[in-house]
């Protein structure tokens, strides 16, 4: 069975049909890229899955449970984490704190434990910190050492993107939704991140959905590619078949008649 199975998902904003009945599925341990021209509904697709907007209709079956109309924090707790297209960190928290916050839904100590400084609470705090450091070590030395205590806003753009991924990883997800992870990165950083996305699957066993514009990245990481246009899935398959699909070319370049 697919880890995430989406059936006939629709969402409209006012008169604009952002998602017009999308079917989608992803198997555990695979990477699926979602591509499509600007305004195709890719980010809306993520927003609906992660619960930021409730869908108008349709099912979001994650591991067999329908998550439509759940609160975002509940969805994250079930194991779907995401990043944002326009990097949204907590800029004034430190790098380490940003990631530690991600552990929130995997920990449970409340006010009493905190006030009384119970053993469980102290151990949990220690565990949160260790886990956060472990997640950050995924990015080598870039976000480690002296970086821990720097506020997130001093980071370079690429590091912010990395930190956002680290924060999402800290929620210990099964499914990771990455919204244009390489946007704004230089070619070298892009190559590096592409490899990291592969490692997320191969070493960490995560299932990943990527929205991406950079076709080289898509080609490199994807097990399967899904193409959206005007809120409708117009093609899916491996990179080869999708990239030669007439509908896809048309969606990106326009109809020959219009072009001419």
């Amino acid at each position: 069975m697919a880890l995430l199975q989406i059936n006939q998902l629709t969402k409209a904003f006012g008169g604009v049909q952002a998602l017009g009945g999308v079917d989608f599925h992803i198997d555990e341990g695979t990477i699926v890229s979602v591509i499509g021209p600007n305004g195709a509904g890719k980010t809306s697709f993520f927003n609906v899955i992660s619960g930021l907007f409730p869908p108008d209709s349709g099912e979001i079956l994650f591991d067999g449970d329908n998550l439509a109309h759940h609160q975002p924090n509940e969805i994250t707790r079930r194991g779907i984490a995401r990043t944002f297209q326009n990097v949204r960190l907590f800029p004034n928290l430190t790098v380490l704190e940003n990631v530690m916050v991600g552990q929130h839904c995997r920990t449970k100590e409340g006010m009493w434990g905190t006030i009384l400084q119970t053993k469980a609470q102290r151990e949990e705090e220690k565990r949160i910190e260790e886990n956060a450091k472990e997640v950050l070590s995924f990015f080598g030395s870039r976000l480690a050492g002296y970086r821990y205590d720097q506020p997130a806003f001093v980071l370079s753009y690429a590091n912010r993107r990395r930190l956002e991924i680290a924060r999402a990883m800290a929620t210990e997800p099964r499914l990771l939704l990455l919204d244009e992870p390489t946007a704004g990165m230089n070619p070298r950083e892009t190559v590096e991140l592409t490899e990291l996305i592969g490692e997320l699957r191969d070493e960490r066993g995560l299932t990943v959905v990527v929205i991406e514009h950079d076709m080289k990245v898509v080609e490199h990481v994807s097990d399967r590619v899904v193409v959206l246009d005007h809120g409708v899935k117009i093609a899916e398959g491996d990179y080869e078949s999708v990239s030669t699909n007439d509908d896809v070319i048309e969606a990106y370049l326009g109809r020959p008649a219009e072009a001419g």
Partner: peptide, 17 residues
């Protein structure tokens, strides 16, 4: 006053309701 994240689905749904 204590925050708990009990894993059972029902309690979560219940809290939001």
């Amino acid at each position: 006053m204590t925050t708990t994240t009990s894993p059972s689905k029902t309690s979560r749904r219940f809290r939001f309701n």
